[in-house]
């Protein structure tokens, strides 16, 4: 092994570590950029009967009502979750949900159950779920089936 080969083999790991550090830094800063991702409704949405799933790729959000408390359960931990009830005049009422025991569950008491308690009643909602590096947004319509 000549001296140039020795030097190259000594320098290569340093460059490798530098490259690894640089790539990590690049990925980290890219992940911190806020992106908006639209959640799509998976089939019919019926919050009262615990049948409302919104999804985007592997990220899924289940929205359901439990005794007047609207609960949001997601497959990834959330930083914040905000629910908006939208009336027929397109006016929104904001409900900032609070975290339950884990960041996978967020809830708050809302008037949703009173608004759509009877069969056939529906209401428009919007959801804003924030995770690191992205905000998931969705506009959907809940309709009580039974």
């Amino acid at each position: 092994m000549n001296r140039h080969l020795k030097v190259a083999f000594m320098v290569a790991p340093i460059l490798l570590v530098l490259g690894w550090g640089g790539a990590d830094f690049y990925e980290e800063s890219k992940a911190n950029e806020t992106r908006f991702i639209q959640l799509e409704q998976e089939g019919q949405c019926d919050i009262i009967n615990k049948n409302c799933v919104l999804k985007s790729g592997e990220f899924k959000v289940n929205v359901f009502d439990k005794d007047g408390v609207t609960v949001v359960n997601s497959t990834f931990p959330l930083d914040t979750a905000t629910l908006f009830l939208v009336d027929e005049n397109d006016k929104m009422t904001t409900y900032q949900l609070g975290m339950q025991l884990t960041p996978y569950y967020w809830s708050r008491e809302t008037p949703l159950r009173q608004l759509v308690s009877n069969k056939g009643e529906g209401h428009k909602l919007r959801l804003l779920a924030q995770i690191k590096g992205g905000q998931y947004i969705s506009e959907f319509y809940t309709q009580t089936a039974k």
Binding site: N2, H4, F9, A12, G19
Partner: peptide, 18 residues
């Protein structure tokens, strides 16, 4: 791929320097 390229680079550098 990058690791293979780095290895090739080491030998290329050595040959060029010789």
């Amino acid at each position: 791929g990058s690791i293979y390229a780095f290895l090739a680079l080491v030998f290329w550098y050595s040959a060029k320097m010789n």
